[in-house]
Design a protein around this nucleic acid. Sequence first.
RNA 1: GGUCUCGUAGCUCAGUUGGUUAGAGUGCCGGCCUGUCACGCCGGAGGUCGCGGGUUCGAGUCCCGUCGGGACCGCCA
Length: 575
Amino acid sequence: MRTHQCGELRSDDIGQTVSLTGWVGRRREHGEHLAFVDLRDHTGITQCVINDDVDVRSEYVVRITGVVRARPEGTVNDSLPTGQVEVGECEVEILRKATPPPFPVDARADGVDENIRLQHRYIDLRRERMQRNLRIRSAVNAAVRKAMERQEFVEVETPMLVPSTPEGAREFLVPSRKEHGAFYALPQSPQLFKQLLMVGGVDRYYQIARCLRDEDLRADRQYEFMQLDMEMSFVGQDDVLDAVSEAVLDAAEAVTGERPGPIERMTWLEAMERFGVDKPDLRFGMELVELTDVFSATEFKAFAGAEAIKGIKVDGAAEEYGRNQLDKLTDKAKSAGAKGLVWLKCTDDGVDSPVAKFLSDDEVSAVKAAMGAETGDLILIVADAWMTTCEVLGTLRNDLGRPPVHQGPYRYVWIIEFPLFVGVDKESGRPKPGHHPFTMPHPDDVDKFDTDPMAVRSIAYDLVLNGWELGSGSIRIHEPELQQKVFTALGITAEEADRKFGFFLNPFEYGAPPHGGFAFGLDRLVAILAGEDNIREVIAFPKTQNGTDPMTNAPVEVDPRQLADLGLKVLPKID
RNA sequence: GGUCUCGUAGCUCAGUUGGUUAGAGUGCCGGCCUGUCACGCCGGAGGUCGCGGGUUCGAGUCCCGUCGGGACCGCCA
């Protein structure tokens, strides 16, 4: 139907008779016998000059045949790639009339209520931004797939109808028609199957896998999302990190044209100490500064005896933060778990602070020296349990200094050596697994299982980009003795382990190779590479924060006969 | 489950201390226009002020509830 696309024609094409297809954008009429029509497709816009009295309107789908010619002197449009030329002597074929769109099909729609864009997503997708995002996504998928194939990974598809598993995210359930009361679950990840593929001798598995989790939605979370899921046999941590790095760096290069340098590594402990989070945003400073020793002999009760005292410095912010804002910061710190927040405004001869009178001159000057503070800087200090101190300041640091996620430069970092156990389950009093219960403990820490379990590190790792967690993985336990040790530390009896995880672990008896893997979220990577701070912008048909689709109206009630078939009865909502 | 925030014309918004017939831009429809490109000029249509209740002589405006969108906390092994 067409000889060229709408973004293609250049001066070199002058004289050619061409056919273009697309949607009618803006039109500028000058009486009955001259009209300019901007014809648009996913490649761009070409101006067509129409001399007949043809009724073409916004978003009509048309085929225009005409002759490419140079624009008359003084009418060249430098803001269009095709602006040197136009198509004249046009014959217009209307392929489909259209009603006017509810919002403009151009950059002005960026400001339109997202709900309305989603209601008419098929129109929204015609826009340059959306077309670009879809194509970036496709390029990332292609690059990732190519990188995995090159590294001899085998793409294996795993089932979408799987058994419900006891741990982890809330699952979507699918009722069985054959056995009323029995349900499939939709996979929150292919975790179970990919490890069994290793037992099955596949050696290196990957899949661009759809994962489903029935948890509340966010800017970076949808019910359904895509992961590059992979697993490899007979490897250690470095092999996994290298293989994933290849895929991620290839994807970044495919989109930006520039290959990022090798991805740096940081231990979980260092990330917490310096940035107060396990997904540090390395694009800005404001690092946490250790102050515990400075106050080792302090008279100030709020500091005395605290496990950890740390501070962050906000450059030159002393003036701009009034009492009101400082109170808000304090509230923020408290809601993040701190007992309080101490602020110091640096002056020429000391500090201005409600607690200044409790601090000795030596302490004040030691703090300023440790923080590298100058007059006009604002210092925020938290004294609490080590984890709390780190986390609270990490939250404040992100609140005060973090740029939008897509703002360059890209800072990839591997966070390694996560703790094997994190915190304590409120109900059972048992330690909770940091990653999952099949994660390999760090070999140097195995003797700490009995003495100090919370200090045991694991061979688990996260990939972080600009403060967003892209994904995580681990080397898995493949020996039953070690697995038993972990279960014991988690307070899981042999009987309970068999009941909960038997279907998963029993196959290991038939010969599980040492193996490990990783999974990272493609939506998040694509969003950041596309310069978006919301993954809905890189998903063709996303859901709202409430999990609904304004276009299809899903979820919807179903016919009672369907429910009867499935042996289901809907109960009234309880408030 | 919680905190915050938004909801007025197709779209983006303004709307005074609670006071006459709720406005603008843009889009849409009609007319004029032979070199525009955010074309221009003239005219017109277009409103359940999200919904329900309350206070009041009088509510877009104040109060309560509710629905919908968004950000975040909880949650996401």
